[in-house]
Amino acid sequence: MSGIIGKKIGMTSIYSADGQQVACTLVEAGPCVVTQVKTTETDGYNAVQLGYGEKKEKNTTQPLQGHFKKAQTTPKKKLVEFRDFEVSEEVSLGQGLTVDKVFEEGELVHVIGTSKGKGFQGVVKRHGFGGVGQATHGQHNRLRAPGSIGACSFPGRVFKGLRMAGRTGGARVKVFNLRVMKVYPEKNLMVVSGSIPGAKNSYVILEK
């Protein structure tokens, strides 16, 4: 698996060759820095840790300052580890990584982000319940109610994990198999088909 860290920019659309308009998301991907290389001998598994986004040194803890010093780079905001990292060339500590080294046009990519927080929401929005479905025939004020949450004295309790209202969004979400429509190495920019989780300017992980 290889990948890169990026930032969501916003959405636009592209016409495909057959005239379909495809919704696309722009991601500023990289440039990242290799901050750690893990190998089977030293760590028990192979992985590469990448860093992205500048951070002030005074806002960096001393252990992390040492970590970045080892890689001879400035402090980074976001650190992500990719297991069994494979790109065309060998990666070494402190090396910079741009988007064109990892992705090319036409490839499939998985995108991980933190979805927008929606606050406390009912079951219709949170779990896609249908609601009652009728507004007449004696119904009132129960249009978006969850309905029954279980039987009576047997089992005499509500099962764990039953889908109910609650805090929605703000969770880690992974979207699979988005197409890389375009790569602009000079702007560190990548265009993927479809929508990706999170707000604008939020960090996303692109992997394949």
């Binding site: 920019i9 916003g10 959405m11 636009t12 592209i14 722009l26 500023e28 375009k182 602009y184 702007k187 920019l189 265009v191 604008k200």
Partner: peptide, 13 residues
């Protein structure tokens, strides 16, 4: 609109 979005739309259209 972000400058980068403008750049991409300009480039394609």
């Amino acid at each position: 609109m972000s400058e980068l979005i403008k750049f991409v739309e300009q480039d394609l259209d």
